[in-house]
Simulated assay, not measured.
Amino acid sequence: MSRTPHLLAAGLAATLTAAGALHLARPRVFEGLIPTALGSPRAWVYGSGVAELACAVAVAVPATRRAGGLATAALFVAVFPGNVKMALDSRPGARAWARRPAVAWGRLPLQVPLVAWAWQVSRGV
């Protein structure tokens, strides 16, 4: 049996864990992604951090890996509008590196391989 599916799942779980922990430890970095119409940005940032950690656990456990991969793909699609907002709000010379145009716009095409990665994990590929 190939170890590749397990390595893909472990890598995705590690990535989700890091992202989720960052959302919980440094929520201010992500608050600008949340449209004001949604209410408290902090609550949404914490919620997405918890969702990332839950997906990490689901992906790490073989019995829940398929559902975890699908949930992760859905999460990556769901946060894409926030990434678009960050790109539209980016400004040259911004203090925060994530608010600089090269970084903010450069993140957008990265969502495609992230969704594909999660999909592959869900399929055991």
Rank of each mutant, 00 (worst) to 15 (best):
A78Y: 09
P41V: 12
A43V: 14
L22P: 00
A56D: 08
R99F: 10
G106H: 10
L38Y: 12
V115Y: 03
A73S: 08
A74V: 07
L16C: 07
D89H: 13
L12S: 06
A87C: 10
T4C: 08
W117A: 09
A56C: 07
G124W: 06
W97Y: 08
T72M: 01
A21I: 14
A118G: 04
S90E: 02
A118M: 06
T4S: 10
A78N: 06
V115Q: 07
G20H: 03
R95P: 05
F30N: 00
L110E: 09
T4Q: 10
V121F: 02
T36E: 15
P92G: 11
Y46W: 15
L88N: 09
T17F: 10
A73P: 03
V50P: 04
W44V: 03
G69A: 03
G69Y: 00
V45Q: 01
L88D: 08
A74Q: 05
P41M: 12
E52A: 12
V29F: 08
L33A: 11
V50R: 11
A60G: 04
A58I: 02
L16W: 06
R28F: 09
A87Q: 01
A60H: 05
I34R: 01
S2M: 12
A56Q: 02
A104K: 01
G93R: 07
G106N: 12
G68N: 01
G93A: 14
M1E: 15
G49F: 02
A60D: 03
V84R: 00
P27L: 10
A60K: 03
A116G: 09
A56P: 02
A78I: 11
C55D: 04
L88E: 10
L70I: 09
F80Q: 03
W105V: 04
S90Y: 05
G32M: 05
A58N: 05
F76I: 04
C55I: 07
V103I: 13
V112L: 15
S2L: 14
A78Q: 07
A94V: 00
P27R: 08
L53I: 11
P27M: 09
A14F: 13
V112H: 06
W105D: 01
L108W: 13
V125R: 15
F80H: 08
A87R: 00
R107K: 12
G39P: 00
G106C: 11
R3G: 15
W117I: 14
H6D: 14
A96K: 07
R107Y: 12
K85E: 08
L7C: 11
T72Q: 03
G82D: 01
P5Y: 06
S48K: 02
R123G: 05
A74K: 01
A74P: 00
A51G: 03
A63C: 09
W105Q: 05
L8K: 03
A9S: 06
F30M: 09
V79W: 02
R42A: 14
T64S: 11
V59K: 01
P109K: 10
L22Q: 11
L12W: 06
R95A: 14
L108N: 11
L16H: 08
V77P: 09
E31H: 12
